[in-house]
Design a binder for these strands. Structure first.
Lengths: 224, 224
DNA sequence: TCAAAAGTGTTTCGAGTACACCCATGG
DNA sequence: CCATGGGTGTACTCGAAACACTTTTGA
């Protein structure tokens, strides 16, 4: 509720997005290596200042597309970071988002503005710019929590996947091994996935049945 | 991560706080009746524009004090609301907070800027200004969730309280009755409250033992 | 002695957990 | 035929839930 305007110093509203993906049973986040001082060679999550009349969510999607080449991803607001000293450039308040992308849809964009764009394993991140370490921590906590009480995992997997794939997503994010039989029984009893009817062929072992999520949108269920 | 400045229109950063309190086994939120057009007589959560170099949390505490007369309350960031049309005044992005105050510490401030300041039962709110209905919904969801996996209830109760008081807080927020014996067994087994040694006297029934929370800060435990 | 809330145990049921072997395939 | 991951069932334990009566006090 605005009571009075008392805004003299320039204030910028930015977004930063933590983009997660599970690749080879490892949880990764997409990061950009910076060139600008004072954070030369430090890494940061993709982000930027919002445009005129742009909502932060729209800005986040735009920047995801521009800097990381991803669209149609799961995106949710994380939190707002507003320490006046968080950015040496000035007063930049950042609304952080977190995004989930399936491993198979990842294709990195090459941007000349940055030194480098790559995936980093979240349990071994490089030195981060700004307050991005704090953002990373918040994002990871949120992701772990959400995994346990919703079907968000759908947005980290391709349309069809095996139960082992799904278990791998859980294990890599939660950072612990799960029992195969118990995991399968639980997931199947929740009525959130269905057999697609297809199988994985060409592997030198028994073919795995493929499943798909019933809903391609967030549903709350107690998983673990 | 700021990439470029592209801020022409004036943008204001505001905070709005949903202040909850349980009184007479009813969950209430503190609201202010507005005078300004176009929301004359509509109700809104206390809030305002942040000051120079002020963090949103500091601003939230300042406004809580100014408009509601409360300090030292539990306060946590809720979410940021940024629809460009949410405020007819201009582009006002609001970082919403939610606060919890014990019933006994409530003393309302009289502010000449507003028509009226009062507690409203959350399940019977009046017509709200701005997008405050959405904020209310988000706050309530968060409070309910948090009650189930943390000891936040400590911030809604006085230092000493009876088990019935505590159960009343849970029932009024969750909106359902709980079994007295199961509730007590569970709460006591969690090792988050301790008997204070005192009892409530002067009531025409058996005196109730008083308890206190072990920690006066947020602790995560599975309560329900 | 009555009204009003405090306090207290037991049984039942289901979910979570631990645990080990056979199956289907490609090489 | 062997290596590789896929797929399956049972027993145990513990917490969740349902449920009703006795106790202490002030009026």
């Amino acid at each position: 509720m605005p009571v009075q305007a008392s805004n003299h110093q320039k204030l910028f509203l930015a977004v930063d997005s933590v983009i997660f993906s599970v690749q080879d049973n490892q949880l990764n986040a997409l990061m950009i290596q910076m060139q600008k001082k004072p954070y030369t060679n430090k890494w940061a999550f993709p982000g930027g200042i919002i445009k005129q009349n742009e909502t932060t969510e729209v800005a986040a999607r735009r920047i995801l597309k521009e800097q990381a080449g991803v669209s149609d991803v799961y995106l949710e607001q994380l939190a707002t970071f507003d320490d006046p000293k968080r950015d040496p450039f000035g007063r930049v308040v950042s609304v952080a988002y977190f995004a989930l992308v399936p491993a198979n849809e990842v294709k990195l964009q090459d941007s000349s503005k940055f030194n480098n764009v790559t995936w980093w394993p979240v349990n071994n991140l490089p030195e981060l710019a700004y307050d991005h370490k704090k953002i990373a921590k918040t994002a990871l906590e949120r992701l772990r929590a959400k995994l346990e009480y919703s079907n968000v995992a759908y947005s980290l997997l391709p349309k069809e996947f095996t139960l082992s794939d799904l278990q791998g997503v859980y294990e890599s994010i939660l950072g612990r091994k799960l029992d195969k039989r118990n995991f399968r029984r639980k997931i199947l009893s929740l009525d959130i996935i269905l057999p697609s009817g297809n199988k994985v062929t060409g592997k030198s072992h028994r073919p795995a049945a493929l499943y798909k999520f019933k809903d391609q949108k967030l549903v709350y269920v107690d998983i673990l």
